[in-house]
Design a protein around this nucleic acid. Structure first.
Length: 412
RNA sequence: GUGGACGUAGCUCAACGGUAGAGCCCCGGGUUGUGGUCCCGGUGGUUGGGGGUUCGAGUCCCCUCGUCCACCCCA
């Protein structure tokens, strides 16, 4: 048995790779338009960073992280998400004294989960983080960027935005207390998963897929009904902003987000037809995280998009075909043909050299490459300073010097 | 981590418990200097791996690994 790839960590080849690259470039390019600057952050971080930011009792930290001890004895992890590292870098650079920072990034994340459709152990996220703005305007602009991104990719019609507010350190604890009390009161009527969730993450119970649990939850208290004045005002502003920009959304009190650090605004863009892993881009506000990681009280909002999931929504893009394939007829012509290929490339053409050898093989190669033109370097013509240019669609060919050949190639 | 479905050539798939095959792809020839069509030929498999039942296992049984889908969780 030959060596195979690690479970849940796929190879992206050909058109699939091109599609991921497109997703990356589109994201970074658009983010820049909104004032977000690209940052390149480490894939490895101290384990402690994720424990402190994501929360010990979450699945990610509890059982999904790839961790190891390096030779110095330090506990190192492959990052399971991007926000924690961004905050760490932000603090380490002392940028909390540098005013508002808007960052974007793309890169691989790692979680040791059971693979399924839209869920991989190594996956790519495009993320944006905005530090230093408490205003709902920051939430709205971030959402606008996310929306533009999905729209630019052509998937906006198949995605809907779900919005919620998770409250803050003032209003969430009392809500949580009331919810737990509510759930405890009917503990034995909830499913086993939900019973465990009561202590681990009670808000998760709200979106249990079990019908009998949902029936029990009819009269459950909602965070939105218990927001403090500041959170209520913030949420109203976010909604007003979205409406002003014409971005459609639905308030969904069941959007709770998995990670501990979220406050106030939480959102998910959910796609149709992706199976169970349909959240394609998600994020929210995390005003407490910078402080929790030892920094000052800096508010922040951000999102991350799962590029492999988005790729599932995109049509397969055909790979670009070369403008011309260069064919050498006869061993003597190999070196001259290489020169011809280089000269054409210097003129800006996308050129593949067929590799010499039999004519039939080389033309077949040109065909497979999907090239429009074959530039044939043969002995007779070369002696006269000419090459043959064949239109592979019509089969017609001309003897031309290099300059004329370029002109012809440029006509199409 | 739990449940279910499925593993035969590079790909898509056949083969009643009885000689492992087809199509596509790939390589070569027909055409020592002209492709995509056509014709001819060829490479390619320890049937995911291991064990068992049987005169005989791709086929039945057990284990294991892998893939997919769902749960859980999340992008």
């Amino acid at each position: 048995m030959r060596i195979q790839r690690v479970r849940g960590i796929p190879d992206w080849l050909g058109a699939d790779a091109a599609r991921l690259r497109l997703l990356e470039e589109q994201g970074i390019g658009l983010a820049r338009q909104y004032g977000y600057q690209e940052v390149v952050l480490p894939v490895l971080e101290p384990k402690e960073l994720f424990v402190r930011s994501i929360g010990t009792h979450t699945d990610i930290v509890g059982k999904e992280m790839y961790c190891f001890e390096d030779r110095g004895g330090e506990a190192i992890c492959l990052r399971p998400e991007g926000t924690a590292g961004a905050v760490r870098a932000f603090l380490q650079a002392g940028l909390h004294r540098g005013g508002t920072q808007r960052w974007c990034y793309v890169g691989p994340m790692f979680r040791r989960e059971r693979p399924q459709k839209g869920r991989l152990r190594q996956f790519t996220q495009f993320g944006c983080e905005c530090f230093g703005l408490a205003s709902p305007a920051a939430d709205v602009e971030l959402l606008a960027l996310a929306w533009r991104y999905l729209d630019a990719l052509g998937v906006a019609a198949r995605v809907r935005l779900l919005l919620n507010s998770l409250g803050c350190s003032v209003c969430r604890p009392p809500y949580r207390e009331r919810l737990v009390a509510f759930l405890e009161a009917r503990r034995e009527r909830l499913c086993a998963d939900c019973q465990a969730r009561i202590t681990r993450n009670p808000m998760r119970v709200l979106d249990c897929k079990n019908a009998s649990c949902q029936a029990e939850l009819q009269s459950a208290p909602h965070m939105l009904d218990m927001l403090c004045d500041a959170c209520r005002a913030h949420f109203a502003e976010v909604r007003a902003g979205l409406e002003a920009l014409g971005i459609a959304y639905r308030v969904d009190p069941k959007i709770v987000r998995g990670l501990d650090y979220y406050t106030r605004t939480a959102f998910e863009f959910v796609a149709e037809g992706l199976g169970a892993q349909a959240t394609v881009l998600a994020g929210g506000r995390y005003d407490g995280l910078v402080k929790a990681l030892g920094g000052p009280d800096v508010p922040a909002v951000g999102f991350a998009a799962g590029l492999e999931r988005l790729a599932l929504l995109l049509d397969e893009a055909p790979l670009a075909a070369p403008d011309a394939v260069v064919i050498a007829l006869g061993e003597e012509m190999l070196a001259p043909s290489l020169k011809v290929a280089e000269a054409l490339r210097r003129e800006g053409f996308f050129v593949v050299h067929a590799g010499g050898g039999g004519a039939k093989r080389q033309f077949r190669e040109a065909d497979r490459q999907g090239a429009r033109w074959a530039v044939i370097v043969g002995e007779d013509e070369w002696k006269r300073g000419l090459v043959r240019v064949k239109d592979l669609q019509t089969g017609t060919q001309h003897e031309l010097d290099l300059e004329e050949a370029c002109k012809l190639l440029r006509t199409d």
